[in-house]
Design a protein around this nucleic acid. Structure first.
Lengths: 214, 214
DNA sequence: TTCAACTTGTGACAAAAGTCACTTTTTACT
DNA sequence: AGTAAAAAGTGACTTTTGTCACAAGTTGAA
């Protein structure tokens, strides 16, 4: 029984699934849920009751600003979990970020208490988390260097390249307004940068659609 | 024997020291070293051979830019360790950041292999690391929101407040040039912002010295 | 097809940040 | 006291980013 979840775990979280006891324990206490694009699965100020293991789809993690703005911090893709949920859970504090489903996501949901007990028993779980922490640190630090040393056109370009890579398509269905919101900028600024990128042959623009050429 | 290190561990890392076996294991394999202001104890591209536990003093962690610039990412203070060292060590990759001693630092040095084996045996070690990861995440994310939503004057002001807090004094011995370098900006820009802050009564300026008033 | 909603374009301007060249002040030392 | 080095001030200018107001285009549904 439960062979489907078993397979999902083996396919998408091999570093966890290769330890039979750990795998069995996760299978015993987790449930699979599907969320749709636009669903907000984690809100700022919310307490962490579950740890998500993303089997398929794509999430975006945002930090909200006081004045209604928000910045995209990083993505969570298949085979990953939410580092901010982990740390908030371990400390028993509220989430300081927002998690939004970008592409229909199948999520293996592990109850928080179970995750804590697993973390104590299985080094592999911690190793998995360390790797994840590390990857997200690198992303945050890269973002800081881009914000510090580069102009917005680099920020926009890297955003588009990231989107293309994570969505597995160079043709993005996205508006200038959405890009501006993700980057904490304004539509006009993004529009002008996109025109510049198009002029440089880096993208090709159509209404509601951007093709990433390089 | 070794009662000094024992005390340092108990005083500065209570969450680790309260577990006798863990404490003894750390004492058995760690050494205490003193570093002076200006010492670079971790370089970009360097492999991680030790995990530092900071007993006293203050470190600054920088990300270097291709064009000779650098940004201050966060501080490491007494009772903390270096998260980037931990993650780089666990993954066996080179350091992507630079660690510089800001104030004379006593550091308990744990060999990397020992740290790995400790992490497997003692949940408390991992809990300590999770807390640390969490704290540094918060700092990085706050930096990203400041860079995204605020002007440089807020960045400079927060920098000064941080320096004052971490150094335990509202009178900072620092030049405009140094601030500019830490923030990845230029001296003139920082000088003008400082003048503005002084005009607002938030700081008081003298050559090579800044008093943080609020 | 025709309109309404959404999306993008654009010019004019303001504000913020960076650059350059040079002066003035302060400090530390002979 | 005199002086060189370091630190800070400053004006003029450029570039980048943000803001505002409105025009023009695209799209999908009635």
């Amino acid at each position: 029984m439960n062979s489907t979840v078993d397979q999902l775990l083996s396919n998408h979280f091999p570093s966890l699934a290769k330890f039979p006891e750990l795998r069995d324990e996760i299978l015993a206490i987790s449930q699979i849920h599907t969320f749709n694009a636009g669903d907000v699965i984690l809100r700022e100020g919310q307490y962490i009751k579950v740890i998500p293991l993303l089997v398929s789809g794509l999430l975006k993690v945002y930090k909200e600003d006081l004045n209604g703005g928000e910045v995209l911090l990083y993505y969570i893709k298949s085979g990953e979990s939410c580092v901010m949920s982990i740390t908030a859970m371990m400390k028993g504090v509220q989430s300081s970020v927002k998690g939004v489903v970008e592409e229909t996501a199948e999520i293996l949901v592990v109850p928080a208490e179970a995750a804590i007990s697993i973390a104590k028993k299985y080094p592999a779980w911690n190793t998995f988390m360390y790797d994840l922490f590390s990857a997200k640190y690198d992303e945050l630090i890269h973002m800081i260097t881009t914000l510090t040393f580069e102009n917005k056109d680099v920020l926009v370009h890297e955003y588009l390249q990231n989107e293309a890579k994570l969505k597995g398509s160079n043709t993005l269905k996205i508006t200038h307004q959405k890009i501006a919101k993700d980057l904490g900028s304004t539509r006009e600024v993004v529009s002008r940068i996109l025109k510049k990128l198009e002029h440089n042959g880096q993208v090709s623009l159509r209404q509601g659609k951007i093709e990433v050429l390089e």
